[in-house]
Write a protein that binds this DNA or RNA. Structure first.
Lengths: 147, 147
DNA sequence: TGTGAAAGTCCGCAGTA
DNA sequence: TACTGCGGACTTTCACA
């Protein structure tokens, strides 16, 4: 991970669809060299994938919330992979504190959101907080100061 | 937003670097037609961007946490755009409940994390919860059932 | 909105420093 | 690890349905 790798990461985080030749112009390296570095960043797992960032509201997911789960023990959400396949569940974080994990949920309606909490109720006690707005919903990972 | 748009969204969420010709093969449409549809999805804001998904730990951000802020009033975090420019702050959500907003923070060390909470202290009262693991950290937005 | 064809560009694979 | 050069694939623009 040298400065060149970080330059490539910066560009690919801002626009994952940049061609190798455009990347090569921006970082001042030949296209094959860029391709090789990007391939290694992917292979070593630094780059986990490239995703189109979809606007939740424009995709119909107008009801967002964070759900804290109290579910220690054998019925814990974290012991059942099924929850991670529910399309409304965007993120699952195991956390410290008085709950087991926090889920980020995006539903098409209040009814659909309530339905998620109902299903979660079989694992433990869900506690919902609604997201009213998201002033910042993504930020690129910047290099440590030494680069 | 017809079934074809959703098919393109599905592919581009899974791999944002797919070429138009590869997309055209997958959705059974000519490359120019694919390019035109993708251009419109971008222009209408359904697609907000394309981002390389960087592994936080491999990028050195080993300390993750959620910070709830109690900061109602003129010094609220949400009234100052500066916080959204801090590189450690990945996400800001305004929420319902007894706090004003929840920040997702990724720091290179405990010291750096503590430093973020110190800086947040000037806006209100931060309450931190550490993220121990992230069993699910991204999920594509699926079309509503009718597609 | 969609297709098909043409021109320019890009990608991937060599061989080499 | 990086560069150059080449053949084949791709992107883009256009006319047209």
């Amino acid at each position: 991970m040298d400065a060149m790798d970080w330059a490539l990461l910066r560009e690919l985080q801002e626009d994952a669809r940049l061609s190798y030749s455009e990347l090569s112009r921006r970082v001042h390296l030949s296209p094959p060299a860029v391709a090789e570095r990007v391939r290694r960043l992917e292979e070593t797992g630094v780059i986990r994938g490239y995703h189109a960032h979809v606007d939740l509201a424009k995709a119909g997911r107008t009801v967002l919330g964070l759900i804290r789960m109290s579910c220690y023990g054998p019925t814990c959400v974290l012991r059942d992979d099924k929850v991670a396949t529910w399309p409304e569940v965007l993120e699952i974080n195991r956390v410290t504190g008085d709950t087991c994990c926090v889920l980020k949920v995006a539903a098409v309606s209040m009814e659909a959101f309530a339905d998620v909490t109902d299903r979660l109720g079989t694992y433990g006690t869900p506690s919902s907080t609604m997201i009213l707005a998201t002033p910042l919903d993504w930020q690129p990972i910047a290099p440590p100061p030494r680069f």
